[in-house]
Design a protein around this nucleic acid. Structure first.
Lengths: 195, 195
DNA sequence: GACATTTTGATAGTAACTATCATTTGATAG
DNA sequence: CTATCAAATGATAGTTACTATCAAAATGTC
């Protein structure tokens, strides 16, 4: 069996070091004021290496490994469960595994995503991929086609709901925790967003 | 009263010429393969002038004058009307004023928005502004606060629904017209996106 | 026609990103 | 342990979007 190996371990370590140093520099001097050269230098690598790990500067903030976890948690839910309910439960399970440090990291990232337009834009590109993922999972679950208007609409609206929740959580200070806000958003959505 | 004047007329003309030439070049040789220098040259202006009209290359596709029209049409709707219904009607009114040529132009723009990630990202930044606009209009109408979670959630989800509709329309070939698709999306949303 | 103001053009510079090739480092077989 | 191969890194040069600044031209006003 393929044990991790020094090579792979070093790569992961380098990746995390670059992300860590980048976040530190962003906090200290701002996103736009930080160059890739600085990030690379702080992490002890060349700019070339930076670009091998992150296709764009924005990715150093946006990139994470949560998507496959969500997919797994979603598919763990029982067949008969309604899609929106399955997703809610999946998120609950995922958050349950997060340490407070994880949450703090997420919050810092979201802060930048919300406040730097270019990063937010990049995040949205990610969301498009997530939408497709949801469309496919939901299509499989309901026996519909993934290109069906209502399936795609469901995915788009759900991602928007989720995003709105995260943003509200991030700039809402320490008011409520993320899951509570998410529940309120999903409830509101299920009722047809009445006002 | 301020009559248009030669100066303003020329500016509008220059703006439209740049957008027109840009769209032509994008169609002919692709978005990424077209430089701002080329667009400026084709429109008979300097690159400096291009940047005075459009802050980014993406804006030449994304920028339009529809937002204020939507706001106006929305505020024309009777007080008592539910927000989602008022918006639906406002859109219907707006589309009614569009010529087939307008629609063709919109479709070409949407094609690029959907297919070029950078442009789509820029469009999303616009959408964030639109969300805020909707939040404020809805807040005024319902007597709530514009920073209220449910108000912001409503705006976010509504913009997502609308966007999903436009995208489906754009790559759905000549199947249905935009307003029909929009109606289906808004209906689906009002019912709580059941599947 | 003279003057003020707005719009444009030209120039130089920064930084993100790409492409390419030589160099180093970790994995592997003998 | 060494020789060899593959993967990862570094260095270099170049393109292009975008910024800042100042001089020149076009337009509006008296």
């Amino acid at each position: 069996m393929n044990r991790p190996g020094l090579r792979e371990r070093k790569k992961i370590e380098t990746l995390h070091r670059m992300q860590g140093e980048a976040m530190r520099l962003f906090e200290e001097q701002g996103y736009d004021e930080t160059t890739i050269e600085q990030i690379a230098a702080a992490a002890g690598v060349s700019p070339s290496t930076f670009y091998r790990y992150f296709p764009t500067k924005e990715d150093v903030v946006v990139q994470d490994e949560y998507d496959p976890m969500i997919v797994a948690a979603f598919q763990d839910q029982p067949e008969g469960m309604a899609p929106i309910e399955a997703l809610r439960t999946a998120l609950r399970v995922l958050f349950g595994q997060f340490t407070p440090e994880d949450m703090e990291r997420v919050r810092k990232r979201v802060d930048i995503i919300v406040s730097v337009p270019a990063v937010r834009a990049r995040q949205v590109q990610q969301s498009v991929a997530t939408e497709r993922l949801i469309s496919e999972m939901v299509a499989e679950r309901t026996g519909r086609d993934a290109t069906d208007l209502e399936v795609r609409h469901f995915a788009a609206v759900l991602v928007a709901s989720w995003t709105a929740g995260v943003i509200a959580w991030s700039d809402g200070g320490l008011g409520e925790d993320l899951m509570t806000i998410m529940d309120r958003c999903l409830d509101h959505l299920e009722r047809g967003v009445p006002l």
